[in-house]
Design a binder for these strands. Sequence first.
RNA 1: GUGGAUGUAGCUCAGUCGGCAGAGCACCAGGUUGUGGCCCUGGUGGUCGCGGGUUCGAGUCCCGUCAUCCACCCCA
Length: 414
Amino acid sequence: MASPVLAPLQGMTDLAAPEVFLWQRIEDAFREVLARYGFTEIRTPVLERIEVFARAIGAETDVVQKEMYAFEDRGGRRVALRPEGTAGAIRYAAGAGATEARIFYLGPMFRAERPQAGRRRQFHQLGIEALGPPSPAADAECVALQAHLLDAIGLDGFTLRVNTRGAAGDAEAVAAGLRAALAPLADGLCADCARRRDRNVLRVLDCKQPGCRTLVQSLPPVTRFMAEPSRAYLAEVQRLLRRLEIYAVEDPLLVRGLDYYRHTIWEIAHPALGAQDALSGGGRYAIDLAGRTVEGVGFAMGLERLVMALQARGVEPADPAADRRIWIVSAGDAVREDNLVLAQALRRRGIPCSLDLAGRSLKAQMRAAGRAAVRRVVLRGEQEQARGVYRLKDMRDGSERELDLPALIEALTG
RNA sequence: GUGGAUGUAGCUCAGUCGGCAGAGCACCAGGUUGUGGCCCUGGUGGUCGCGGGUUCGAGUCCCGUCAUCCACCCCA
């Protein structure tokens, strides 16, 4: 890029054809499936008061502490670009007084991180929130929906792992239990984990260092430190998932980052992705905002990562209108204006239709049609214009025939 | 915030020991005065990321900086 002004900001990308066709296909498929489950779209602002995120996600989390695009607006309010979608959706629900709802969102999120494979500063998520009191059935349905969505876009080869965070009352005992279990093993921990042990002990469980990874294998599962109802809750979710023909690996080392999770948590990863291999993650939560508590279960999917996984499986973006599109080719300048009028008439009848507006040669127009891989070309020059006919060419076998306007429209729409 | 790699034409990249800025693809035109692809010929296109330094001379060496990619922290 010749000038930095011509490039998007760090970690942000322009999304254009042909890749955008793949995004549109994914979004269309998602909307169709979500409607079957009774979810309706919620479009919340990208910018929120900073407390919305601090309260919902956790004021001490890294996401809030160091990854938010936060600033003061002109009225002196502390605001931030949303780093995830749940907080805003819950703010909406709490404000509306809704305790039961089925909503989804789809749009850009922002985190001021260093970019890497599968991680951008502006990225896109589809998320759903099924608001309501704790219910293993709701959790299982949510996981099943997620698998259904991946199926609908033709992605396979992913892995699904589930675990539990337990009830709110279990958190203390789990942290204390893990710290106690780690105490005799502290020498084997990496430097990061030595810090995590005090600050965020759950994160020791998914450390990437080989030494820590073998060490945590010997720890008791987190469920060991939870009350019986929490264990039963997870077991019931698993039973229901099996009835829904969803196979989920129970992984006591699975950890999820945000503070609001309770009970069931899960993650879908794909081996084609690299270090950031989580396609989607979700869980049950309870979020307090301004004295109102909203409970629910939901998940978020990273759309960039979905696209990466699809492309790794050989899926190519394609213009959905390509095989219906025709090109109108003008021979001679005298017909160009009439052909513009023709193009408009065809488009009004639903025919995707392109033509050269820059006055290029016949040869160049034919080349453009060939490049666009259109199946048919309408060639119209002064000869055809004088005789009131249209020459329809099949680009695959090169055959041509002359038609009048009604016959042409019939041929193109039929 | 930390670490590594990489920045040369629209794209992918070559450029030797410091000595005239290159290839393939793409694009444009012609070969064919009204017909795409294949072939042939020709052509357009460059702030060698940016700034400084060393040198008679820097794409090449040195310093800084920005960006991209990958990884860490953290997370979808």
